[in-house]
Amino acid sequence: MDSLVVLVLCLSCLLLLSLWRQSSGRGKLPPGPTPLPVIGNILQIGIKDISKSLTNLSKVYGPVFTLYFGLKPIVVLHGYEAVKEALIDLGEEFSGRGIFPLAERANRGFGIVFSNGKKWKEIRRFSLMTLRNFGMGKRSIEDRVQEEARCLVEELRKTKASPCDPTFILGCAPCNVICSIIFHKRFDYKDQQFLNLMEKLNENIKILSSPWIQICNNFSPIIDYFPGTHNKLLKNVAFMKSYILEKVKEHQESMDMNNPQDFIDCFLMKMEKEKHNQPSEFTIESLENTAVDLFGAGTETTSTTLRYALLLLLKHPEVTAKVQEEIERVIGRNRSPCMQDRSHMPYTDAVVHEVQRYIDLLPTSLPHAVTCDIKFRNYLIPKGTTILISLTSVLHDNKEFPNPEMFDPHHFLDEGGNFKKSKYFMPFSAGKRICVGEALAGMELFLFLTSILQNFNLKSLVDPKNLDTTPVVNGFASVPPFYQLCFIPV
């Protein structure tokens, strides 16, 4: 009986604490739906499609509103004006990374994606500088992407125009580009180590996009005490870190300090320079996690976009025909596509942009946080508050993009057929937390897609009208449904 009384008292205290925290903070924060004790607004949000729920709530509470995930307040920004004001106009104040408990377990605050403060700034600055020195957006990395595009075309030829699921092959190409940047090595598509790495990356994007992960991140005790797919994700990350550590040891034994070959060499050189400046942010643990982040951000996002792009091109054969006509006119058949071609191919450029806009790969991006107490639109948001960005509300804005739910390359073309930029184009987020590999991803999408369409016609196994382009999961990332196609050599 005594234990029951204690339990009831504990629960009562928890409920009172929950109510007090919510009521004391709500006077400062933007308005929002009334949260339930302990669980907050979790029942009012469709976990399978958070973005749709945010759109519905914005119609009631406006472009800036507050939700509670458990006891934790989260300020939501919906629509271009609110997102721009926060991420661009007040970029420094909104540059923090929001709480992501599962990532905390995986990387302990290291790396480039989930770190904060001085650690994040130094690692991000170093990573950007190193990638630029190796030619991100310049010639040397373009050579690597072109080489991988040629290998991709050869792998597709091996399908002999038979029906195939493109998931694996389209994942190999961007993964190999990242391998060449980090390890100075590309792998054969049949290499077992490479296959294991690909498998872990593919599993992780599916797990991260599941409703279960949303629950884990908002009720963090689940991570330590409950079984579930989150444990598989943590094991996959541990596998990748151990693999990278092996490569780091190989580099330490063979590195030429006067001739760095890749990202690992550059990081080890930085560690050597910083060894007298303790404590340094440049450690082996930081290198492991930064490399894992580059793999995660640079492989599955690009391969998922490529997979979605081919599905949309199957669905819209008239678009595919126009792209192939432009390829034939500008590039021809006797040389590989290059980035200089893009400025002469406005329709193809528009298609690449429209694919990214339409699929809305990361509907709410990753959570941000404010780095200080900030007054925002007459609300006071306390330091450390998590900020949720609705990228969907920007990419699918119906004023900027008429009929935003329709796939239409003319969203990025003017009346004369010239490519038209849009400030609403934010597939990689915006501001200080914009994806480090934005330029690389854009290069890969253009070169891989043009190389495929230069060499193959795409054949659907069903009537294009019957192809479903609805994402199968739409949590962290929008993942396309399973499909097969035939690559018919031109």
Rank of each mutant, 00 (worst) to 15 (best):
Pro31Ile: 06
Lys206Asn: 11
Leu208Ala: 15
Leu71Thr: 11
Glu328Ala: 15
Phe65Cys: 03
Asp143Met: 14
Gly137His: 08
Ser3Gly: 14
Lys465Ile: 11
Asp397Gly: 09
Pro221Asn: 12
Lys432Thr: 06
Phe267Leu: 04
Leu485Met: 11
Leu440Val: 05
Ser3Arg: 12
Pro464Ala: 07
Ile182Phe: 12
Met339Leu: 11
His344Leu: 12
Arg97Lys: 04
Asn56Arg: 14
Val436Leu: 15
Val490Lys: 15
Leu233Phe: 13
Lys232Arg: 11
Asn259Pro: 14
Gly62Arg: 01
Leu77Ala: 04
Leu458Thr: 01
Ala477Arg: 15
Leu306Ala: 00
Lys28His: 12
Lys28Gly: 12
Glu203Cys: 04
Leu380Pro: 04
Pro33Ile: 02
Asp165His: 01
Leu391Glu: 07
Asp397Met: 04
Arg335Tyr: 04
Phe456Thr: 01
Ser51Gly: 14
Leu11Phe: 13
Asp414Tyr: 04
Ile222Ser: 08
Ile374Gly: 03
Leu195Arg: 09
Cys266His: 14
Ile331Leu: 11
Arg21Asp: 10
Phe263Pro: 02
Ser140Lys: 06
Leu208Phe: 14
Tyr68Gly: 03
Arg433Met: 00
Leu458Gly: 01
Phe295Tyr: 04
Ile389Val: 12
Leu201Ser: 01
Gln146Pro: 00
Ser3His: 13
Leu170Asn: 00
Phe295Val: 08
Pro166Ile: 00
Arg335Trp: 02
Gln356Thr: 09
Asp224Leu: 07
Cys151Phe: 15
Pro163Ala: 09
Leu87Lys: 04
Tyr61Met: 02
Arg144Met: 12
Ser365Met: 12
Ile452Ser: 00
Pro363Leu: 00
Glu325Ile: 10
Ser162Pro: 01
Asn334Ala: 11
Lys206Tyr: 02
Ile244Ala: 05
Asn107Val: 08
Val394Arg: 00
Ala321Ile: 11
Ile264Met: 09
His230Pro: 12
Pro409Ala: 03
Ile359Ser: 12
Leu54Trp: 05
Arg307Lys: 05
Tyr80Glu: 11
Asn474Val: 06
Glu285Pro: 06
Arg433Gly: 00
Asp373Ile: 01
Val351Leu: 09
Tyr308Cys: 04
Asp463Glu: 10
Pro337Ala: 11
Ala161Trp: 02
Cys372Leu: 06
Ala309Cys: 10
Leu29Ser: 03
Gly40Asp: 02
Leu388Cys: 07
Ala238Leu: 09
Leu90Arg: 15
Phe100Ile: 15
Thr159Pro: 01
Cys164Gly: 01
Trp20Thr: 13
Pro166Glu: 02
Cys372Arg: 15
Phe487His: 00
Ile178Arg: 01
Thr385Trp: 03
Cys486His: 07
Lys59His: 09
Pro163Cys: 05
Arg21Glu: 12
Asp143Ile: 09
Ser478Thr: 12
Tyr225Arg: 08
Phe425Ala: 11
Ile284Pro: 06
Ile182Gly: 00
Phe482Ile: 12
Leu197Phe: 09
Ile389Asp: 02
Asn116Phe: 04
Asp224Val: 06
Met257Ile: 14
Phe263Cys: 10
Ala369Asn: 15
Phe263Tyr: 14
Ile452Met: 04
Ser336Trp: 12
Gln278Phe: 10
Arg186Gly: 01
Lys52Leu: 09
Cys216Glu: 13
Gly96Phe: 08
Cys151Thr: 06
Leu268Val: 05
Gln278Arg: 11
Ile205Trp: 13
Glu104Thr: 10
Val394Leu: 15
Lys459His: 10
Val355Ala: 06
Phe134Thr: 13
Thr167Cys: 05
Asp408Gly: 01
Thr55Phe: 12
Gly40Met: 01
Ile42Ser: 09
Ser343Lys: 14
Ile205Pro: 02
Gln340Ala: 15
Val76Pro: 00
Pro427Phe: 03
Asn474Cys: 08
Leu445Asp: 03
Arg21Lys: 13
Phe482Gln: 15
Leu306Ser: 01
Phe376Gln: 01
Cys435Tyr: 00
Glu147Met: 07
Thr305Met: 05
Cys266Tyr: 14
Phe263Ser: 03
Asp463Pro: 11
Pro166Trp: 01
Arg335Ala: 08
Ile169Ala: 03
Ser140Asn: 09
Gly171Ser: 14
Asn218Phe: 15
His230Val: 09
Phe65Tyr: 14
Gln278Pro: 13
Gln214Asp: 09
Gln44Asp: 11
Phe219Asn: 07
Leu9Thr: 11
Lys241Trp: 03
Leu17Cys: 10
Cys372Lys: 15
Thr167Leu: 01
Thr167Tyr: 06
Leu440Ile: 09
Ile488Tyr: 06
Thr371Val: 08
Ile42Leu: 14
Leu453Cys: 10
Pro427His: 00
Phe168Gln: 10
Tyr225Ile: 12
Thr301Ile: 03
Gln252Pro: 04
Gly40Leu: 03
Gly46Ile: 04
Arg125Leu: 05
Ser429Ile: 05
Arg333Tyr: 10
Pro427Arg: 02
Lys206Ala: 10
Asn474Gln: 14
Leu391Lys: 05
Gly111Phe: 03
Tyr189Ile: 01
Lys399Ile: 09
Leu391Thr: 08
Phe448Pro: 00
Phe456Cys: 01
Ser429Tyr: 02
Met198Ser: 03
Leu388Ile: 13
Gly25Asp: 13
Gly79Leu: 01
Ser51His: 14
Asp468Arg: 07
Cys164Ala: 03
Ser303Gly: 08
Leu313Cys: 09
Ser254Cys: 12
Leu449Gly: 02
Ser254Gly: 10
Arg329Thr: 10
Pro367Ser: 15
Asp188Ala: 07
Cys13Ile: 14
Asn41Ser: 07
Leu170Thr: 03
Glu93Ser: 10
Pro33Gly: 02
Ser127Leu: 09
Glu148Asn: 00
Leu36Arg: 07
Ser220Ala: 11
Asn133His: 08
Leu453Thr: 03
Ser390Val: 07
Ser254Arg: 13
Arg21Ile: 14
Val319Lys: 04
Asn378Pro: 03
Pro33Tyr: 03
Phe446Tyr: 09
Met129Val: 12
Phe482Arg: 15
Glu285Gly: 05
Cys435His: 00
Lys423Asn: 08
Glu85Asn: 06
Phe69Lys: 06
Lys465Trp: 06
Leu458Arg: 00
Pro409Phe: 01
Phe456Ile: 00
Asp293Phe: 04
Ser343Tyr: 11
Ser23Lys: 14
Phe100Thr: 15
Pro489Lys: 01
Gln146Met: 12
Arg329Asp: 13
Gly171Arg: 15
Val83Pro: 02
Asn236His: 02
Lys465Tyr: 06
Phe239Gly: 09
Ile387Met: 09
Ile387Leu: 09
Glu147Val: 08
Tyr483Ile: 02
Lys423Pro: 10
Val330Pro: 00
Pro346Gln: 07
Pro63Tyr: 03
Glu285Trp: 04
Gly137Lys: 09
Val248Asp: 02
Phe401Trp: 09
Phe110Met: 13
Glu142Arg: 01
Ser336Met: 14
Thr385Leu: 03
Pro63Ile: 03
Asn334Phe: 08
Pro37His: 03
